[in-house]
Design a protein around this nucleic acid. Sequence first.
DNA 1: GCAAAACCTATGACTAGCGATAGGTTTTTC
DNA 2: GAAAAACCTATCGCTAGTCATAGGTTTTGC
Lengths: 289, 289
Amino acid sequence: MLVAARSDNGDAAKTATDFRMGRQVPTAIQTAADIRPAAEALRDIARDLGNFRVAACANIASRSPMTDADGDVLASCVFGWPATKEQWWQKPLLALSSPLTFACRYENEPFWANAHGIHTRAPNPLLDQIDLSLFQGEVNANAVICVPVHMSFGQIAAISFSPFNDKRDDLSKEFDLYSDQLEYHARRFVHGYTRVSSQRPWIPKNCRLSKREVECLRWAAVGKTDVEIALILERSCATVRFHIHNAAIKLEAVNRSQTVFKATQLGYLGNVAAVMVPHPQIEAQVAAK
Amino acid sequence: MLVAARSDNGDAAKTATDFRMGRQVPTAIQTAADIRPAAEALRDIARDLGNFRVAACANIASRSPMTDADGDVLASCVFGWPATKEQWWQKPLLALSSPLTFACRYENEPFWANAHGIHTRAPNPLLDQIDLSLFQGEVNANAVICVPVHMSFGQIAAISFSPFNDKRDDLSKEFDLYSDQLEYHARRFVHGYTRVSSQRPWIPKNCRLSKREVECLRWAAVGKTDVEIALILERSCATVRFHIHNAAIKLEAVNRSQTVFKATQLGYLGNVAAVMVPHPQIEAQVAAK
DNA sequence: GCAAAACCTATGACTAGCGATAGGTTTTTC
DNA sequence: GAAAAACCTATCGCTAGTCATAGGTTTTGC
């Protein structure tokens, strides 16, 4: 089936046009001065594709609104949210609040959602327990297409596209037709925005962690004490501390919390829950002490 | 300029064809049985576009090779790496090793690289200090296009496309023509692979952190002690502990390291270095104690 | 092959910081 | 006004961090 699809469309590999709409990508941002026109481009693309209104949050952990080079808030000045509603980003619990924000933490690809459910490209059981009972009130729409953007340093952005002045509550067709394109432009926009907005970039001078350092750090990150890690790895407590201390030095961190933080941001710990296996017998040994 | 480009191509918004090459996306993975055909599709797309050979690492923090449903290693069975070279993923320091892996930690968008530099869509000063002197030996190619994929839970993937059996060392033209398409398929492939490979998905039952909890946690994540945080926030040390403890309960974490880890994974702390401002006067007060 | 660098392992003592616990007060929200 | 959230004080035991020291193994570069 999948192979057959490739055979039928083999020649399309080199002839497929992309989303750029010309030589430049209108949603890409190179300098702060590009923010406004890029936001306008994103707004217009969303409107042209499905009469969608854009809501964009470059960092779900931050309550700062996205602004252009002059400090004007994009939500009201470009995306068309009424000024009286512009408070939604002061409270991350609204609009891009609990249900959508939650989903963006756990999902890598675009999805659409309404009060009946969150509809992803492929099933994601992690989203099953999200409470959508207050959907309309929280999201200010009956349905929404949402693009999560996971970025470096653990930053997560969320860009949503909701029907503007109409009552659509089933976006499955639009999602099927346009999610790729909306995702592409949302990513380009948010990547660029984040890049030009960044201050004080941080990079340690020598962050080549050794195998042992990472190993000890992983166990620390899942909550094990030095004694427990020592038992797990069959090494002394002092060795464990040595390695963790070494990792801290390399990451230019002052204590364990910061070390874990930075290692996570840089992807050293990955998806630990899938990698590390619990040690019930070690836990019994520790309990016996 | 950007607005003009949109005007010229306004109608393209709804007529642009996408990368899917038909009704299905050949590189998308829904079940484990799709891994092999999807990998073959990715291989073929890369070959058709630019005679590239694929190297894919779904989690730069893991040394497990990517395998299909039968446990066959994709690098040798599908992507065409000689069996004698298939050890590269046993040592994350090779192939997708230091220079490329490093760049993938700090860059959100595709780039191409050779021994002379890392060429991104927009300048990224964080990549300037990456040592490329041993490029050919480490990467096994004169030049490479690389797609970083940042995913949920802090997982980072890297997919590279290097010229197969030829000496190209300047991929700027291919990058300009095909990076979007390669990125699209690499993302779809890796997202799907990660989804079907995941075990023990983890989600806390109540991870709605309060403003205060996040605030305290952020300072802890950048290495501040409880006393320092208390001074910064003008609250007592006990209150800081209280909030951090609350966050730990909500995230189902047993200690501070694990709390910071999980909060980072879920994007609660965001790009803290850009958000939080140092407090030189607080540091002086702590030093005076 | 050799030297240097990197990595690994370990000890012991001490103290700072964290986690748990208990009880209470104040502020905010509905 | 009541309940929930935020804040406060205090204590004590446990864990993490520091310091100084020592030695061995593996990898890398010439």
